[in-house]
Design a protein around this nucleic acid. Sequence first.
DNA 1: TCGGACCTTTCTGTATACATAGGTCGGCCT
DNA 2: AGGCCGACCTATGTATACAGAAAGGTCCGA
Lengths: 216, 216
Amino acid sequence: MRASDRAYGSLRADILEWRLPPGTLLAEVEQASRLGISRTPLREALSRLVAEGLTAAHSGRGVVVTAVSLAGVADLFEVRLPLECAAARLAAARGDRAAFDALAERFEAAGALISSGGTDQHAYYGLVAELDAAIDEAAANPYLVQAQRQLRTHLVRARRLARDNPDRLLASAGEHRQIAEAVARGNPELAAAAVTIHLSNSLHHLQASVPGPLDA
Amino acid sequence: MRASDRAYGSLRADILEWRLPPGTLLAEVEQASRLGISRTPLREALSRLVAEGLTAAHSGRGVVVTAVSLAGVADLFEVRLPLECAAARLAAARGDRAAFDALAERFEAAGALISSGGTDQHAYYGLVAELDAAIDEAAANPYLVQAQRQLRTHLVRARRLARDNPDRLLASAGEHRQIAEAVARGNPELAAAAVTIHLSNSLHHLQASVPGPLDA
DNA sequence: TCGGACCTTTCTGTATACATAGGTCGGCCT
DNA sequence: AGGCCGACCTATGTATACAGAAAGGTCCGA
């Protein structure tokens, strides 16, 4: 694997998991030495992060990790809604029934697990990512996948704005089960409706759980 | 301006205008010498093109200009439809009436110009780009703008698959006028409907005017 | 004491040099 | 004659050196 790929992955993970919080200045020489590589592959990694919108070029000073604001999250969901609906519609029309039936069952099991208190948040988000990946694969549209990938990247950071409580996680599992079931049934409009409900609730939860503007 | 920016803009324009047709191999040393710059800024430009999907990294051989196929165009429109509709809805809800009224009038004038035979295709596409830009500005959503920018880049190349005839251009001008008017009226659903009609006709024209699979 | 200008420092942007990997061409073996 | 192996060569990936520019600090003057 190339050094620039490793640097990109490492920096991206650090930003997504808030080890590099918003506002952090990423100087080239500093990061290059930290990652044990030269400036050339590091610059390529930074370029990719800037293109993704995770960092912004602060002219003459290097790149800084971009802020995550409530207003930005609202914008994000404004675009996510039509895209996720489109993806769900396509997946319902083209997808494999068995795969989404299986996912629906796993979300039901996850809901039961959450109710019983054995909340493994990380594993749950992994399951959500699996559903997203299954929908992407079923939709079979590279442009859609690329656009979704960009948005989901920012979503991961936005999640940290809100503290996930078990109640919301339980509701989320139910909503995801609804989506998977609708896709499994091959009903595009039902799938789009389920996605609309989920995103609406998800955004509302995010906005309600953040008291003030907490952008860094 | 940075040398990498110039290289990026130059290569991007060359690809979009088919001076570098699909399948062209872009070798680093060759392009660097052609553009009169070093390999370092050229590599940054190529990275951006790969991220945009205009070129693909052919491992060990450099990057090649990606193909444009009819199937790809269909995928493109599958994503454009929900995004452009969402943008039109937001613009109708938030936009400035006067600006879109003015654009509607200009599309009417453009239609008259096309009817009279004075077809300036380049100027017309410039006007379309102005409407797109106005909608983007009115929608005021950076995530939406970025996603649209990616798709429109590919659209520009796809246009070359079909030969634009004056009849289609005239119809297109009318459809764009409808969009601008709907946005000016502040009617989101009307605007989305107008966008749906335009994209549907646009895709149909593209598919009808390409007899066989002409991907390069 | 405050403001402005100059200087220094450090950063980015670019070029070039070097190593390695992959591709191609030719020869040899079957 | 066809296929396989090896060597050479070219192009990419990385490192480093250098120049230009911008930001911050400091010093001088009002």
